[in-house]
Amino acid sequence: MNILSLLGTMPGAIAQGLIWGIMAIGVFLTYKILDIADLTVDGSICTGGAVCVMLLLNGCPLWLSLLTALLAGMLAGLVTGLFHTLMGIPALLAGILTQLSLYSINLKIMGKANQSINVRMHDLLVSMQFLKGVPFYKNSIFVVFLFIAVIIGLLYWFFGTEWGSAIRATGNNPAMSRAQGINTNFNKVIGLMLSNGLVALSGALLAQYQGFADVSMGRGAIVIGLAAVIIGEAVFGRFFTQMYMKLISVAVGSVIYYIVYQTVIWCGIDTDLLKMLSAIVVAVFLGVPFWKKKLSEKYSAKGGKKNAGA
């Protein structure tokens, strides 16, 4: 095991972590702000990649391709939102239904299960080839970092506005929100659209980075997104209480996830097991707060008895 070979994989891990960080911020919007576990993302990340790659292959300008990918993701979020609010389907199931139909849609967009795009023939924004030997402003880590900075800035502004605050209130306490005149259904739909728009944008960057879009590229994406949210919270949660700090911690959480991921691969673990390991890590981290609470209640109940006796 050569430590230098591990270090050599780090720029790639960081770039990938940052790209998935955009996706994780999307998951943060639904999971933490709207209090919805939205499984649409497993499909919409691929939709973003598929739309972007197909447009680029057909000679569409880069920025327009990215924008269209974002809009395609928002459309997917709209569908989940309408399933949930208009048709009364539980949010989790609504997301699963959209995700399933996106599998077909993604195949139709690409015409087959996999479409590759060559960085030498197309003008791409990010690529694995852009990690070394390019000027810093072309370096993929720098480019994605800029993307994240702008996204966090915009989201921080939006969630500080009257409308953004109403969306936060919707996730916090829907009954109170309606009593204060907030259209909770509308805000849930908007939140889901924002989230999936970001996820699709992340997919568009990811497809460019790895040089292909694949119909299964989103499998388990929600778990990676949740892992990033949870890792960010575990590491920074104590000090980072402001909205923009939380968004930063999600992005950093995603980078940490990919650094650990690369390290685990470097340690020689069977890569077939990686998805299972990710799932176990997320399950453990989701379980810890629950048990912490349970144990502290048990403990304080005992303490109470002791005090009553004295």
Binding site: F158, G160, T161, E162, W163, G164, S165, A166, Q180, G181, I182
Partner: peptide
């Protein structure tokens, strides 16, 4: 802001 339009003005 109950009953008013909630726009993109700063909340606080």
């Amino acid at each position: 802001r109950r009953g008013k339009r909630r726009g993109l003005a700063w909340e606080i």
